[in-house]
Amino acid sequence: MSTLQTVDLASGSEDLIDATLADLESDLIKPVVRVYVYVGTKDDPGWDAALTASGWLVDVKPYLASDISLLRKWVGVGDPKGIVFRKGDKPCILLDATEAAAEKTVRTAIANAKEAP
């Protein structure tokens, strides 16, 4: 069964909490937001990179998706491991497994993600 999880940045904790697609969709329509979804498990280096990059930056909401199938409506075909969103329902940047495991790359990608005009 595919799952979606996130962290409660307001509490300052890295503990995972369950989330829904509705939560993700809700975040994507917020006026000021950067969303990063990592596809994998919580023990992957990619999730480690996602959390750390979120900590260095401001207003990044990280999601951990167990399966890309949850995100098909946004990414279509392909098998990206990291997806960067700004406001709206179009992903800005897609990262492969190697890129998603590199914290600096993830951080730079999120920081450079521009809002769609």
Binding site: V32, L57, V58, D59, T108, I110, A111, N112
Partner: peptide, 9 residues
């Protein structure tokens, strides 16, 4: 926020 994040990159 973009400015902050660009520096934080």
């Amino acid at each position: 926020i973009d400015e902050f994040n660009a520096r934080a990159a």
